[in-house]
Each structure stands twice: as structure tokens, then as C-alpha cells.
Design a binder for these strands. Structure first.
Lengths: 198, 198
DNA sequence: CGGTGACTAGACAGACCTGTCTGTTCGGTG
DNA sequence: CACCGAACAGACAGGTCTGTCTAGTCACCG
């Protein structure tokens, strides 16, 4: 058993299992070009696996898309929570969340929010729509808890406002690729926080 | 000539020319389900025209998409400018622009910004990307002119902030379909304006 | 050493997509 | 009436997509 595990880990350093390679290829291709535009042939080509491995691991393309979105959800929410937890003061924590977002803008492959992109390709009411709503609800919860902790008035309303800044910033940075977006979102968040505390 | 024109107008009341019917069908289908998802067969079926009429009028599907986005651009920018022009006071004019947007949320077929949706289906750098940038730039100009007229400090920065609220609101209302979005965007715009004038 | 399970390579079916082409119908004009 | 151009219906070609299936390879384990 342990002997097998060691052998696996050595093997993984050279060539990780197909499921992981597929998820990585899906993340790169789906995020950059869209879920609907990229076919399974391109995913398996980039992952370097056989098509049967994809359907064995994920069942269908929709299964791969769901796994891609789930991984994105956990990864981004995790980064935002880590940014918030790095600041004990709740107001600073909220600004740290926006700085965490702004750091993503600088990545050369930044292409907006994956849920926003995926949702635009599928009709409302489907599983992608539900996943996008869940993602947004969790992000809004992060803001709301921090607003309550900061003692602002109307924390629910302020959380909605901060999410407007957040998703508007992600969308703007995707299309404009402009440093002004990061400055504007931070200034807007600061102004809204100051007004809610005064 | 004039006789022909009169005959045409009578005819149009019964059955408008294929180009208009195609644009209307494209608007309904592309906006609701996405540019990439909807095929030309469904467009011509809804428009009630022959496929040859589509390719005669627009050359290609991409030509129809461009015409669809152009029509959306003119229609929405026109509505926002009209809303702004209805208020002589620039601060009230800015809020009127947001109210104009919030009125769109109540339409049962509201599905966010058409440029945001279309851009998510095409890679960056293409004609759709350029059209989206032009649309956003014009919307930002509306805000900037009103900010200058209102005498706010840093009108450029404030215009960027207002656009964050605008596009974040459109995106949020698309996914959440929640009345809180309209309230939050108005409150955020008011707070930002008040802070920039104090 | 023989077997077992995971993986690979690639052909294939069936559906759908864009774009073209062939005929046909029909209202308006000379 | 004869004609002409616009629009119609629909078949068709060529390509791409998802998903299935067959056949072969290879590492590991008893």
C-alpha cells in the first residue's frame, strides 16, 4: 500500500494522472476561449490523454465543465478568504479582498470571472446558472460578514454594493485591461465603507 | 416613385422587409441564448424568411451578429442619453441613467448586457471585442461629461467608478434577478456622487 | 510469469453548423 | 401580356461537434 503510494508519487512528478491533466487543460482552454467554443478534442490534445479517459473520468463534457467550475469556485473563494483573513481589521480585510482581485488583473491570461463567462454561453435555469448564483452568494457572504464585523449600518445593502464593485471590476478589467480599473474599484470601496461608518 | 413608396409602407405594416425581420429575430434569440448557441436556421425560422435572404442582406452570420450588436449599441446608448437629457441637473442626470438601467431589469427577458454576453463567446482581439470596448467607452463618456458638468473632483476617476456600478449592476441583475440590485446600485451611485462633491 | 486494470490511439456514428445552389412563386413595371 | 427582380422553400456539400467503440500497450501484482 505505502509502497504503491510512494511509487505513485514518483510517477506523478513525471506524469500526473489523466484526471488532473484534463482539469488543467480544461481550466486553461475553457477560461481563455469559452466553454462552448472549445471542443473535447482540443482538451484531450492539450492534456495529452485519450478521449476515453475523459469520458471515464467525467462522464460527459458537461461533467468536465462542472468540475472546471467547481475547481474555480474553491480556488478563487479560497484566495479571497485568505486575503480577508490576513487582515484582522474588517475594513482593511474588505480592501484586501479587492486587492486580491486586482492582483488577478495583472496576470497576462486574465479573462474575467469564469462563472460570468460560462453563464453567458448557457441559457438561464441550467446547472451553470445555479453554480454562478452559488458562487456569487458565497462571495457576498464574505462581504456581509466583514461588514457586520465592522459595525457598518445596513450591512446587507453594503454587501450588495461591494459586490457591484467586485463584479463590475472583473468585467471591466476583462474588456479594458486598464490599470484605472484597479484604482477605481479601490477608491469606490473606500468611499462606500467610509460613508457606511460615518 | 412616390407611388412605390406608399405601396411599400402599406406593405410594411403587414409584412416588414426581410432585413428588419431578421434583425428582430436575431435580437430576440442572440440576446436570450447567446450568439454562438443560436444557429442561422433558428433565426430564419423565427424571422419567417428564406436562408438566401439572410446571406443576401448580411453576407454571413458574422455580419448579422455585427448588425445585431450595432443596433443594440445605438438603442441602449440612445435610451441612456435620453434619460440623462431629461434632467437638467447633472447629478440627477447621472442617477437617471441608473434608473434607466434599473428599468431594464424589470423586463422579463432581461439577460444582462449584450456586449458582455457576446464578448464571452468570442476570443479577445476580434471585432466583437472592439465593439464592446467602443460601447463601454461611449457609456463612460456619458458619465464623464456629466461629472465635469457637476463639478466633481477627479471626474475621470469618478466616471470609471460609476461604470463599475453600471456594469456590475447589469451583471448582477442578469444572474440574481433580484430587486436588491437596483436599490444597491442607486445607493452606491448616490454615495459616490456625494463624496465627490463634498 | 500470467493476468488485470488503466490508459492510449483512432475510427466511427449521428447530429448539427455554415454557406451555396437550384428551382419556384409572385408583385410591380414597361 | 411579358418580363424581372426579390423573396421563397429546401436540398446539398463540407466541416465540426459529442459520445461510443474497438484494439493495442504497458505497468503492476499475486
Amino acid at each position: 500500500m505505502s509502497h504503491t503510494a510512494i511509487a505513485m508519487s514518483v510517477e506523478e512528478q513525471l506524469r500526473r494522472p489523466p484526471r488532473e491533466r484534463l482539469l488543467e487543460a480544461a481550466r486553461e482552454l475553457f477560461y481563455a476561449e469559452g466553454v462552448h467554443t472549445v471542443g473535447v478534442d482540443r482538451v484531450i490534445e492539450r492534456a495529452g490523454v485519450a478521449k476515453a479517459s475523459l469520458y471515464s473520468a467525467f462522464g460527459s463534457k458537461e461533467g468536465l465543465v462542472s468540475a472546471y467550475l467547481e475547481e474555480y469556485h474553491d480556488r478563487v473563494i479560497g484566495r479571497r478568504r485568505a486575503a480577508a483573513d490576513s487582515e484582522p481589521d474588517p475594513v482593511r480585510a474588505i480592501l484586501a479582498v479587492f486587492d486580491s482581485l486586482a492582483r488577478d488583473y495583472q496576470r497576462p491570461d486574465y479573462n474575467g470571472c469564469a462563472f460570468s463567462g460560462a453563464r453567458a454561453e448557457e441559457p438561464a435555469g441550467g446547472p451553470v446558472d445555479a453554480a454562478a448564483r452559488a458562487y456569487r452568494a458565497e462571495m457576498r457572504d464574505i462581504f456581509r460578514e466583514l461588514c457586520i464585523k465592522a459595525g457598518t449600518r445596513e450591512p446587507d445593502l453594503l454587501a450588495w454594493q461591494l459586490q457591484l464593485i467586485y463584479s463590475g471590476g472583473a468585467e471591466s478589467a476583462k474588456i479594458e485591461r486598464n490599470a484605472e480599473v484597479a484604482a477605481a474599484q479601490r477608491a469606490a470601496a473606500e468611499t462606500l465603507l467610509r460613508a457606511a461608518l460615518a
